[in-house]
Design a protein around this nucleic acid. Structure first.
Lengths: 193, 193
DNA sequence: ACTGTTCTTGACACTTCATTCTTGAATTCC
DNA sequence: GGAATTCAAGAATGAAGTGTCAAGAACAGT
């Protein structure tokens, strides 16, 4: 009961995510979010709490949409090696053009907030860990099926891939040069063996 | 002529660098810097201009001290492969403990400012490019001396290493676990061939 | 129509921050 | 010693930005 909301909170959260993603936590004001979402500031405070909680909600949305998409590409049924290569290709694409400017919200948050914000650190780590496990699972299956040689431990290769994904999020921000990014993607695939 | 400065500007710049490094650009106020350096705000403005110029000066100092140290390890005379491995070890060390919380000022700046600040983007890219060229030179020499196999292009391997260095700067911030970092360092060395 | 509840809107207090200005002090050159 | 110059220190200014509040509007159930 009571007066109904005049906005769709998922839609507002989407806009919130987009802004924090593009500009970072501190460079984004609650007024910015309200304006872009087309609602009043007080409505944001009313619905999500303070700025920090709003940010956490946006990160959570990123985790269960954008980041989940990547994990699902890797855990797809079918050839595990092909799945890994598709994931690499997707990450490489995101390191080019306009999307390179945003990079990855989790990577951005890790650098801006993780050292001084335990909650953010935990959430970000959680996602990277899930990515690592997805890679590890796919590598193990690929090794069983003879698509990837077994002389390297799956976990170490998974950690290598996660580090490269994070590194690509940095490279794209400083110089989204197609040749450079393609070289890096090629190395990632080559180093699978 | 005129009244002499009561502080050493290199020392102040050092403190400035330390603060921006640990907290980022937006989270660091000019008042913070002045307090930590033990001088008045107006002295900072007088000496370095505005906040943005102060930041650029701090980045420049980082480039010619901290980052140069890394480049010099790589371009050291002696076995080029050993030099690369020493560089990897150093980067891995920096991804652990307290230094992991700061990470790399260039990587941090890349994510926080590069997309909206052309001057910062250029400076950061410049340093990463220098690092890439250092790696490439060392790899070429190592290949000539038979320390690294020649079936992969030196430039691509160099780009791979730079990406890993940046990735390690992210990993350390979210989870400076010695086992994880050591796995990653091991993979970097292993993938040299 | 009445009540209780929840939302919207605009205004308001409070804080922080970047930057400038004013005043006075220290130093060099003449 | 005086003039010109540069520096130091703190107050002052103006612009954001965060969070709260009061008053009214919209709805559900009775």
């Amino acid at each position: 009961m009571g007066r109904p909301r005049e906005f769709d909170s998922e839609q507002v959260l989407d806009e919130t995510m987009r802004l924090f993603w593009a500009k970072g936590y501190r460079a984004t004001s609650v007024a910015d979010v309200a304006r872009c979402a087309g609602i009043g500031r007080a409505s944001l405070y009313n619905t999500f709490g303070d700025k920090h909680e709003l940010f956490l909600a946006a990160v959570e949305r990123y985790q269960r949409t954008v980041h989940m998409d990547l994990v699902e590409i890797i855990t797809d049924s079918g050839s595990p090696r092909a799945a890994i290569e598709r994931a690499i290709e997707k990450v490489a694409e995101d390191a080019l053009g306009e999307s390179a400017k945003r990079g990855c919200l989790l990577t951005n948050s890790a650098l801006e907030l993780a050292p001084h914000d335990e909650k953010v650190r935990e959430r970000v780590f959680e996602s990277f860990d899930r990515l690592e496990r997805a890679f590890e699972g796919a590598i193990v299956r690929a090794q069983q099926e003879g698509e990837i040689p077994t002389h390297r431990e799956a976990r170490k290769m998974a950690r290598f891939l996660v580090t490269m994904v994070q590194g690509l999020g940095v490279v794209g921000k400083t110089n989204p040069d197609p040749q450079r990014v393609s070289d890096i993607g090629e190395m990632m695939v080559a180093l699978l063996g």
